[in-house]
């Protein structure tokens, strides 16, 4: 019997270590494959250099800029909408209407990314092209808008979740004192929930950065530093998808690992940051 207990525990521990190994293995593998770049001291330069294979420059600077631009735009578009919907669900109509809306938002999280990309290509891009004449319509603005729509459900659910952390008796007290909805929101809900709302924001930003399909399909994929939101741009994720077919020994292929490591580092940093906030919020 004790042997059984020991074996089962070792099995569970082994599974846990294996899963951990996968997480660290992904980073390790990329670091090993990018090692030649580190050895030649190219890695850090590549993070800021432009991409022009003709001149022998293989920097991913434009892609990092593109990623940050598109993800930021998506978050900026998504914040007000998410806040409004979360208020609707959590504060203005917590009963029937809010519950229905919340179910719809939950259902939206299950819509595949490629669908957003597809509709983006055939609906949003022509629209942007006509509205802002000039250019192909494949630009940061289109990608940012679609990505904003993609991350909104996640952000809304995060916000609603943080609103439920507010103790009910605080809200009851505010009601008893005759506070109106907006006072309740600013004086009771926000001070209590803002930390976990910021956590949700960070994780949504990570989600926006990590998305491949929308950027790949509707951001235009030009490997140059964008100058306005109507310029096409290429994200790190799209760069990986576009360059994967290159020759394995070429330096182009090696840049994939620079992209991969940057993405890993940025999303990992976001997770650590979000957790730090969450922990202090609980204490």
């Amino acid at each position: 019997m004790d042997v059984k207990a020991f074996l089962s525990k070792s099995m569970f521990l082994g599974a846990c270590l294996l899963s951990t190994g996968i997480t660290l293995g992904i980073l390790g593998f990329m670091l090993v494959l990018a090692y030649p770049l580190f050895a030649r001291g190219l890695f850090w330069e590549m993070l800021i250099q432009p991409w022009s294979p003709g001149q022998g420059l293989f920097g991913v600077g434009p892609m990092i800029t593109g990623t940050l631009c598109i993800a930021s735009l998506a978050v900026v578009i998504s914040i007000p909408i998410s806040l409004g919907v979360a208020c609707f669900v959590g504060i203005v109509h917590p009963g029937g209407k809010g519950r229905i809306l919340k179910s719809v938002v939950e259902a939206m999280t299950s819509v595949p990314t490629v669908i957003y990309g597809f509709v983006g290509v055939f609906l949003l891009v022509p629209l942007v092209r006509t509205l802002f004449s000039g250019g192909s319509g494949m630009c940061i603005l289109s990608a940012g808008m679609m990505l904003g729509l993609l991350i909104s459900p996640t952000m809304i659910l995060f916000f609603v979740q943080s609103f439920t952390l507010v103790p009910q008796n605080h809200l009851d007290a505010a009601d008893a004192l005759g506070a109106n909805t907006v006072q309740k929101f600013f004086y009771i809900v926000l001070p209590w929930a803002w930390k976990s709302m910021v956590t949700g924001l960070i994780l949504s930003f990570g989600r926006a950065m990590g998305d491949t399909l929308i950027a790949l399909m509707i951001s235009g994929n030009a490997a140059a530093f964008p100058e306005s939101v109507l310029d096409p741009a290429r994200t790190l994720t799209a760069h990986i998808a576009l360059i994967i077919a290159a020759d394995f020994d070429s330096i182009e292929f090696k840049t994939l690992f620079v992209c991969g490591i940057s993405l890993y580092a940025m999303t990992g940093f976001g997770v650590v940051l979000a957790r730090g906030l969450g922990q202090r919020g609980r204490a």
Binding site: I26, M209, T212, T237, I240, G260, L263, G268, G270, V271
Partner: peptide, 10 residues
Amino acid sequence: GIPSIVVGLF
């Protein structure tokens, strides 16, 4: 949090 394309790259 790792983007799916990075997992694909792996």
